[in-house]
């Protein structure tokens, strides 16, 4: 039991410079919650003074932040100075359980989405950039081969019949011009504001590489309706670009309605396709 407790204390120290300082201050009080032998207690009280402990604290933070910066770069840019307090609030709210850095990025995304919905994030672009990046990451880690095999077994989509989005594609709603916003985010130069404009883009990894397609207004409205569970629309005729890019599959034969990432569905629940 005491070795287990000693290891937990070491993990807690690596994760918390504040706990390290508390142990420096009064090791007896700061380590009171752990079941330790005298030797273990002395070792912990000693290591908090070693330069290597601050190296460990730095590495810990860098190991946890790097995947977030890498997989949500545009969102981090949009958050600016709010990023640090938000990620620290996330770390405080949730134990890092499984060591899976990718799932951790998703969980941070969910946390951020709640904060955005509560109005706790200043950037007007954070929500749509987050939805875009979460969709892109999800596609990057999907089992592609199995999805392509599933689609290959379906009949070709009929242009006049209802159809669904390819399982290797995601629709993301934007409330600003997606081209202007994504270009500005990529350049690291997000403006304080952009004119509001509802738009819908479709991300796809059907060909292997990521492609992003903006779809026209009638198809955007149709997608909004089908996404909340109504009948599937003949998207192929509304959005021929999607059909030409191979991003539509026959719905009747097992495809799914296109979900839209990043848009609240609540305001559309009374709509049904005619």
């Amino acid at each position: 039991m005491s070795l287990e407790s000693f290891q937990r204390a070491l993990c807690d120290l690596v994760a918390s410079p504040d706990l390290c300082l508390a142990v420096r201050e009064d090791s007896g009080a700061a380590l009171a919650a752990y079941t330790l032998t005298a030797r273990e207690r002395e070792r912990l009280a000693a290591v908090v003074w070693q330069r290597g402990m601050s190296t460990n604290c730095t590495l810990y933070r860098s190991n946890r932040i790097t995947p977030v910066y890498t997989l949500l770069p545009f969102t981090c840019r949009a958050l600016g100075g709010q990023f640090q307090p938000l990620i620290e609030a996330f770390w405080r709210a949730r134990v890092f359980g499984d060591g899976q850095f990718l799932s951790e990025v998703d969980r941070f995304g969910m946390f951020l989405r709640r904060r955005i919905a509560e109005g706790g994030v200043a950037s007007p672009f954070a929500g749509e950039l987050l939805a875009f990046e979460l969709a892109r990451n999800e596609l990057a880690f999907l089992p592609r081969k199995a999805a392509l095999e599933r689609v290959a077994a379906l009949p070709a989509p009929d242009p006049a019949a209802p159809c669904a989005l390819h399982p290797l594609a995601r629709a993301v709603a934007f409330s600003h011009d997606p081209v202007a916003l994504l270009d500005a985010a990529a350049a690291g130069a997000l403006p304080p504001a952009l004119p509001e404009r509802a738009a819908l883009v479709v991300l796809s990894v059907v060909t292997g590489a990521l492609t992003v397609l903006q779809i026209p207004e009638p198809a955007r409205l149709a997608c909004r309706l089908t996404a909340e569970g109504g009948a599937l629309w003949p998207l192929a005729s509304l959005a021929p670009d999607l059909a030409r890019a191979g991003l539509l599959v026959a719905a009747a034969a097992g495809g799914t309605a296109p979900g839209i990432c990043g848009e609240s569905m609540l305001e559309f629940t009374n709509f049904r396709a005619p």
């Binding site: 690596v14 190991n63 060591g99």
Partner: peptide, 9 residues
């Protein structure tokens, strides 16, 4: 619960 150290300790 499971807790991960975030690095090899």
């Amino acid at each position: 619960h499971e807790q991960h150290a975030g690095m090899a300790v």
